[in-house]
Each structure stands twice: as structure tokens, then as C-alpha cells.
Design a protein around this nucleic acid. Structure first.
Lengths: 355, 355
DNA sequence: CCACCCCCTGACAACGTTGTATCGAAGGCC
DNA sequence: GGCCTTCGATACAACGTTGTCAGGGGGTGG
């Protein structure tokens, strides 16, 4: 039926010279609603109505359209739909440091799950701690018109996101605060957790506590160091820089740092490590030495309960962190217009390791 | 300049009745190229040229356009761009079981990294082992016109993907083969790995080997069980169903299964566990009993080297698995048309645990 | 018998961008 | 000086979909 209109798409005039090649032996163009409409002998709008389950279409036509859809293998182009209707893209973006890190993959898993509940997909990207890359990724996501952004910030300045926020792309920051931008933020009580950890060691009589950390360039580390120092000061213990090792990036350097401190005069009688990678290295070295020096480490980790020595972790609920952030984000997406909130989640001390 | 054309977009006639509300006090519409063009006093195509760094634009106009872009906070709409030019969306999709599982998050990390190298973003989704959900997600991704798909299949039938593949959306399967669809596939040598693991135990003189597995409903488990049985048969050891525990889903049930087997007459002198969750449970129970029964487990895992007892893992390179799959996918996206390949990656036996 | 209304369907424009054709002006050559 | 080329910029259509409106047909009530 209506076999015309197959090539006179140009309309008015001089339509012949257009697309001299595109109509060639194209391997397999994706069928569009136009193709379906032609195949079913109905108008394109009727196809649209059937696809979208809109009312007021004869059952007979519905069947014909659905048959054509099945036969041609039609699949609605979600991009065109979004463009035309101005509706949401049903996509959110997540920027983290490194997907392979369990902390971040837990966040990603929660975000994906929540997204699925809102019939939304999740674009995940790793900034690799590079502010430049972070900015590039965020721009990219915005240009794809995501409905919202979850960001574990790597950079210090996020003011370039202000236009996006004002134009309706909500952003929620996790684990670290944003710089130069007022936005919802969900943090852990790094400072309080470190205070509690050191306080525990002080209560057990320790006066010489070795502190191992990665780098104070990262916000969380600064907070944790600050908390530890506050707890020491509150106990009247002075700062001894020989008991602080910075630049401990992995288990091996942690083990080396422990060995170095223990070999010194007046060695520490306890260690406070500021993340779980360091904790693993500390435990490994202490096990090697059959030493029973007491350990408190920030961050719990999988299988910590199977470590060969008793120790204490400053634990927190990563899933709750993520869930809180995602909930905030979807509230914003749903139209929430209240003043941005900052939520800080508590930490707890937990005993780990085989007795 | 050219201050007209601001409201006569309708053109021909009766343009007044359209959008009586949309032009209202809209909070903050995203600026488009039309807005930029108006602001800079040039045509929309000139804006397009500047944005895309196309030649043949006066420096003076370039500056004016860029200034307007900055002032209005314009960001190109990537969806519209894709729609018009028919180009790629610069997006790939990844379907896995569960992002929080380190095996899958490693795959996701590699995929994201490779995607970034191709200036592509990654949409990640978890099927939660539900074939229905998997199909829904794949449809969703296709309707967003992703350039390619990486799938750890949950279902048994993927023939519904054939139209998509034929219309140019390449699919690569990881870890498990697809059903009813010829496509690139990257697998681990589950069968060979299990054979090697059991053979090692047999060589150490064991004749009664307890085998613990989750469920044979999963392809990888079937392969591993098959390999184990082949190795036993090759050693002339008959099948004893009392030495096989199925339905071991987590460390706790694994521990219980171990306890049950050890309490029986003729207890096993060694265990072969078919995934790392089970291995952890086995080790935990053996440590509790101070038992030195030998253990071989499929899958290495983080901190396995810190487990309180020596054991052996069937190890493999998850990153290589992912890298191989992503490489295949991007070759397809680049236009590779060769016959689909299946790659099987080797496993190795590795000693783990503290001595 | 006519007016009216409801149900169904189709024509057309529009979303924001890019490809193509076109057009005016400037410049070089005969 | 006239013609051709090249540069710089514009107008217009098109990508695939949905919102709006108009129109045809049939039933119902006055």
C-alpha cells in the first residue's frame, strides 16, 4: 500500500542530488518507525502510538504493527525519543577513582541497583585521581544529558559544574567534599573515627603509637591524621615525627615502614594505620616477626576476620554511604529544591582477626 | 543583528497557537546552538563549525562565538549530534552478574579503562543472574544504540540478539558461552584447571577428596565438576557421592559441609572447592579444627596469601580475560568482519597462605 | 434528519545538531 | 574590465521520534 514516498523524501525541489551514495548497498540499516509504518501500511504516528501503548488504536492495527516490528527487528531509538520529548535520558553518571577498588565497586554496585529501581542506567567512569580527567569525564557526561551525577571528587575546584547544576543536572558528592560548589555531600566521619581509634590505643596504655599514612594530599587522609593528632593531644601525648610515616602506598612499603620503626630506639608499642592497604602490610610484617604489637587500622576489608592476628578496625558502612548519596540524587532528580545538605556517617570500632 | 526569527519559527501559518506555555518563565533552559548564534550574531552553522574546529571561519567570529559559548554556558548536546550524523554514540555496555564481586569489578575496571582509551564511556549493569533482567538490560542498551556489548551471560538463549548483531552492534561474551548465537567469546579453561587441581591432590596420595560446589546450574561450575571427575577417573578413583556437596553458597555453608564430611566414616583427606567463597569457608573451618587437611580451591582471591594455612589455588588472569574481550570488541567496532572467535585462557596452580 | 460528540488515524512541525547546496565578496589572471 | 577561483558564511533539510491539531466516520440524542 502507498508505495510512493519511498524516494521523494526531499519534497519541494532538487531532491535528486541528495544522498547519491547513502542509498547504496547499505549492509543492514536499522529499521525506523518509517520502515515499520510502510511495512504495516499505516502512518508513522500510529506506529508510535502502538510502541508507546497509547490508547485509541484498533486492535487489528496494533497486531499488524507489532507483527511488522517483530519481522523487521525494529527497536525504538531512545536517543531520538529523548531529543524530541525533552524528557530525561534515564541515565545517571558515576565518577570514582578506580572501579577495581572494593570500596568504589561497592558504591558502583549500589548506584547501579538504585538506578535499576528507577529504570535508569548507570555510566561509570574512573578519574584515576586526575582532576583534569575528572573534569573531562564530567563534561562528557553532561553533554550526554545525564539526569544526575554521583562524584567522588579528585580535584579541588568544581565551580565549572555550576552552570550544569543551575540548568537542572543535580550533583551529589561522596566521600570527599566538592570545591567551590554548594551541593549535596555525603561523607564519613574520618576525623571522629581516627580519634576513636587512637583513643582506644591510649586507653590500653600505649604512649608511643606509630602512625602510617599514604599522603595528606587526599582529603580523607588529612581528616584522619587530624583526628589522630587531636586524640593524642587530648591524652597529653606530644607529637613525635619519628612515629609518623608518610608516603606508604601499599602493603610492601607499609611492611618496610613498620620494620624501620621497630628497629629504632624507643620503638612504638602500637600502630595506627590510615587505610586498609597499609593495615594489611602492617599485619603481614608483624606476623612475620611473630610480634604481638597492637594495631588499629582505618577501613574494614573483606576477609579481615581471617587475618592471622587480632586487631581493630575503624569500620563504616560503605553501602549506606552509597545508598544515602543515591537517594539524595534521585530526590533531586524528582524535583527536590531544598538547600543542599551534607550528611556525615558514623564509624565504629570492630575487633577483627583470628584469636 | 538580524533580530528577527526569534518567534516566527513556526513559519507558514497558524504558528501562534503552538507552545502557549513552554515559553513561560522556564527556570533555566539549556542554551542551544541557536541561542549561541543569536547571542554572537552569526548563523547557527558557523557556531557548529567553531564548536567542531572546522576550518574556514574568521578568527574574529571564532572569538565571538567562543565568548558567547562561555557566557551562556553552552554544552553541545551529544544525543542530537549522534542522531543527526548517524555516527557512533561513543558508548559501550557491560552486563555482569554483580558489580560488588571483585571478579566482575575487575572486568568492569578493565572495560572502563579500555573504553576511555577509545574516548568511549561505559554503561555498566548487573543482571543479578536473572535471564529476564539480562534481556531487558540488553534491549535497553541496544535502544540507546551503544557501539558494542560485553556480556557475562546469565541466560541460556541469546538468539534475540541476532538482529542487533546483524545490524552492526557487536557482542562479545565473557566467562561463559552464549546460547543460540555465534559470537566472539572469551572463556577460562575451567575444565583443565579443575583437572590440574585434582591431579595435584591425587599425586600427593589422596584417594578420598571432598568436592564442594555451589550449583551445577552455572556453566562454569559444570565445567569444573566435569574436570574434577575426569581427573578422578583418570586416576582410577570411583565416584563417591558422599564426597560431593552441592548447594554450598557461602563460607558458612561451606564450613558446615566440611564439618559434616569430616564427621562421617571414612572422612576425606583433602578438599577441592570450586570457587573462592567456598574455599574461604573451608579454610575457616579447618583452622578452627587446627586440621592440616590439604585444600585446593578454584579462583584466587585478594589476601589469599595471608590466609592462616597453606593451600593451593587454581589461578587465572582476570585482567587478561577482560582485556582480551574488550580488544575483540573494539576490533569489531572498528569494522573487523572475520568469523567469530572463541579464546580460552589457561589456569595455573599457585601455593597460597602463610606457612 | 440534523447537530453533536467520540473514537480513531494521519499530516506536520519540532527537538538540537550536522551535511549539502548556495551565495556574496574578494582576489588573481588573461 | 570581465571571468574564474577560493574563501566565508548562510539557508535548508535531515536524523528518528513525539506533541499538536485536524479530519473522517459512525453512533446518539433532539
Amino acid at each position: 500500500m502507498s508505495a510512493e514516498a519511498s524516494d521523494q523524501v526531499g519534497g519541494s525541489g532538487a531532491g535528486r542530488s541528495a544522498h547519491p551514495v547513502r542509498r547504496g548497498p547499505e549492509v543492514a540499516r536499522r529499521p525506523t518507525m518509517v520502515d515499520v509504518a510502510r511495512h504495516a501500511g499505516v502512518s508513522i504516528k500510529t506506529v508510535s502510538r502502538v510502541i508507546n501503548n497509547e490508547p485509541n488504536v484498533q486492535q487489528q492495527l496494533i497486531d499488524r504493527v507489532l507483527a511488522s516490528v517483530a519481522e523487521l527487528g525494529f527497536r525504538r531509538n531512545h536517543l531520538a525519543r529523548t531529543l524530541r520529548s525533552g524528557q530525561s535520558t534515564a541515565t545517571i553518571g558515576l565518577i570514582i577513582e578506580d572501579l577495581a577498588n572494593p570500596f568504589y565497586s561497592t558504591i558502583a554496585a549500589i548506584a547501579a541497583e538504585a538506578a535499576a529501581q528507577h529504570e535508569t542506567l548507570l555510566i561509570t567512569a574512573s578519574s584515576e585521581e586526575d582532576p583534569q580527567r575528572e573534569q573531562q569525564l564530567l563534561r562528557d557526561l553532561c553533554s550526554r544529558r545525564v539526569d544526575g551525577l554521583l562524584v567522588v571528587p579528585a580535584g579541588y575546584d568544581h565551580s565549572y559544574l555550576r552552570p550544569e547544576v543551575e540548568m537542572g543536572t543535580p550533583v551529589v558528592f561522596l566521600d570527599r567534599p566538592a570545591g567551590g560548589l554548594l551541593a549535596d555531600t555525603v561523607l564519613l566521619d574520618n576525623r571522629g573515627g581516627a580519634q576513636a581509634g587512637v583513643r582506644r590505643l591510649v586507653e590500653h596504655g600505649h604512649r608511643r603509637i606509630g602512625i602510617l599514612l599514604d599522603s595528606v594530599a587526599v582529603y580523607t587522609m588529612r581528616e584522619r591524621v587530624g583526628g589522630a593528632q587531636e586524640a593524642l593531644a587530648a591524652a597529653g601525648i606530644g607529637y613525635d615525627e619519628r612515629l609518623v610515616a608518610e608516603g606508604v602506598h601499599d602493603p610492601d612499603t607499609a611492611a618496610a615502614a613498620v620494620a624501620g620503626m621497630l628497629a629504632a630506639d624507643e620503638p612504638p608499642t602500637a600502630f595506627f594505620s590510615l587505610n586498609n592497604r597499609i593495615t594489611v602490610g602492617v599485619l603481614q610484617e608483624l606476623w612475620r616477626r611473630k610480634s604481638q604489637v597492637e594495631v588499629v587500622g582505618f577501613d574494614d576489608f573483606e576477609l579481615s576476620f581471617l587475618m592471622p592476628q587480632r586487631f581493630t578496625v575503624v569500620s563504616y558502612d560503605t553501602r549506606q554511604l552509597a545508598r544515602t548519596a543515591v537517594d539524595l540524587l534521585f530526590q533531586r532528580i524528582a524535583g527536590e529544591r531544598s538547600w543542599p545538605r551534607t550528611v556525615t556517617l558514623p564509624t565504629t570500632l570492630v575487633e577483627r582477626g583470628l584469636s
